[in-house]
């Protein structure tokens, strides 16, 4: 095995790329869960975003339009989840699973004609002198705009939840929907908005996979990224800054195992390719062994207002 073939600069640069889709999906799902809704359909929304973004980018030649369409499509899909769970009061776990199955089916239906095609991808951003820095330039400052947007989004969500009135209302709805309802806040409306936002984020994450990270469309290409995003929210104890850490940690594991595979490490390939999933399980166990860890009190509970 030749570990020297793994360059630390490229390694960190590719960790940022591979973490971005999970980060986008996880930060959206975190907002949804902070509003008290458990949407297990992240995987389905992500893959819908991946295919819609890819199709639109190919047909228009504009990756940016692809991202916008992906966010919109996944958000619209998430509204069906919202309608079922918030208006028709269906079971959130079952509906989320259904959303994933619908998303997987829908995406392979839409994606069939696009298999094997090449898409225009996002250009690397030129940050002027920053990009020209000797080591850091290649590592941190020569990515495409979505990498930085995802970081800005994390900061924005963090500030929104911590400092704004709307963020406070959203958290109140998630902690006790009955109390929030009694205070006159529109629980269902707040939750619908959160679900919409979560869907848009998952769609962006999916589009990042198909437009930048891979960049191609293959059926089932998210390969559990949506579920890992769900796990990261638990790992992060529902806090924005920890979602960032979690996503980069998982990005790191993914990239490292790919590099080890390429370098021909003396570890079975099956173990390496399963390592992101095994790592997720280990982290979940470590987190849950610590006991209670800040889950919103109304998470997953149906809300039925008695007039």
């Amino acid at each position: 095995m030749d570990l020297s073939s793994i360059s630390p600069i490229l390694l960190i640069a590719s960790i940022m790329i591979s973490a971005t889709p999970i980060l986008l999906a996880a930060i959206g799902e975190m907002v949804v869960e902070r509003a008290g809704v458990l949407n297990l359909g992240v995987e389905g929304m992500m893959i819908t975003g991946a295919v819609v973004g890819f199709a639109v980018a190919i047909n228009t030649g504009q990756p940016a339009l692809g991202f916008a369409a992906a966010a919109l499509a996944a958000a619209l899909l998430s509204l069906s989840f919202g309608f079922l769970t918030q208006v028709l009061l269906s079971n959130q776990v079952a509906t989320g699973l259904g959303l994933t199955l619908v998303g997987l089916g829908l995406s392979s239906l839409i994606g069939k004609p696009y298999e094997g095609m090449k898409t225009p991808t996002l250009p690397k951003l030129d940050l002027g002198p920053l990009s020209d820095l000797p080591v850091l330039g290649r590592m941190l400052f020569s990515h495409d705009i979505m990498v930085y947007l995802s970081l800005v989004l994390v900061a924005a969500v963090w500030a929104f939840l911590k400092y704004t009135r709307a963020g406070l209302i959203l958290r109140a709805v998630g902690e006790s929907h009955d109390a929030a309802h009694a205070l006159g806040y529109k629980v269902v409306r707040v939750r619908m908005a959160a679900i919409f936002f979560g869907g848009a984020c998952a769609g962006l994450g999916g589009a990042y996979l198909s437009l930048v990270r891979v960049p191609q469309w293959t059926e089932g290409m998210t390969a559990g990224a949506g579920w890992i995003a769900l796990a990261i929210v638990v790992f992060a104890s529902w806090r924005a800054e920890r979602v960032l850490i979690g996503a980069y940690l998982f990005g790191g594991v993914t990239v490292l195992q790919l590099n080890l595979q390429a370098a021909g490490a003396a570890v079975p390939v099956a173990l390496l390719s399963a390592s992101p999933y095994l790592m997720t399980i280990l982290v979940l166990v470590a987190i849950s062994a610590r006991g209670t860890h800040g889950a919103p009190a109304s998470l997953g509970q149906p809300f039925h207002a008695i007039q």
Binding site: V102, G105, S108, K112
Partner: peptide
């Protein structure tokens, strides 16, 4: 397309949860 059946099955679950 073969995938439309998968979508079909997913929709079935969705409608069921809604009608419930």
């Amino acid at each position: 397309p073969g995938a439309s059946i998968q979508l079909f099955q997913g929709m079935l679950l969705f409608f069921l949860l809604g009608v419930d």
